[in-house]
């Protein structure tokens, strides 16, 4: 099961408001806990479900969203040789966090020079989605690794196939940053 918690918003990329998510920059980052040896992990389980707060009523308690993320992570980890086990036998417990935000972008307009960088000359608002995957060491119950990605989600939720494709690609990019097993 998945757990959703609030995610602090981070600065968004500059995009056109109705740009497709595929055209918008994808920002991917990760954090490795000092001293954590993620490369020795071989097995995982999903942590218990917790409170939902995605920031978008279309996604709260939406299994079509959460299950797709979980399936995408399962697929990526299986390809990396991880075994999915029960909670008691797992090296790590996985948590997923997701958060939708609306951003305002005004960087296209150069007001000092009184001109625009292009002919549109208008601020843009757009939706962003942040997806985060946490690896919690089951024995220490401490965060060992965290990977996250932020990208435009404009129009994505309203198109189920597009949402699924976006999730698959985003999860793959996040887990690319997971240290390889020894």
């Amino acid at each position: 099961m998945l757990r959703f918690t609030r995610l602090a918003a981070v600065a968004g990329p500059s995009i056109v408001a109705l740009a497709l998510a595929g055209c918008a920059p994808l920002s991917v980052n990760s954090y490795l806990e000092r001293g954590a040896d993620v490369s020795r992990y071989r097995s995982y389980a999903w942590a218990e479900n917790g409170a939902f707060a995605t920031g978008d009523p279309r996604l709260d308690n939406n299994r079509f969203f959460t299950q797709r993320i979980e399936d995408a992570v399962d697929m990526q980890l299986a390809a990396r040789g991880f075994a999915k086990t029960n909670t008691d036998a797992a090296d790590v417990l996985l948590h997923i966090h997701a958060r939708m935000d609306q951003r305002l972008d005004t960087t296209d307009i150069d007001r000092i020079d009184g001109r625009c960088l292009d002919n549109e000359c208008r601020p843009e608002v757009y939706d962003t989605g942040t997806l985060m995957v946490d690896f919690m060491d089951r024995r220490t119950n401490r965060l060992a690794w965290r990977g996250w990605a932020e990208r435009s989600f404009d129009g994505v939720i309203d198109d189920q196939k597009w949402m699924e494709t976006t999730i698959d690609k985003t999860v793959a990019r996040i887990l690319e940053r997971l240290p390889r097993q020894q």
Partner: peptide
Amino acid sequence: MRQITRATIV
């Protein structure tokens, strides 16, 4: 320099 002024956003 790109700058948001009060006049830009109402």
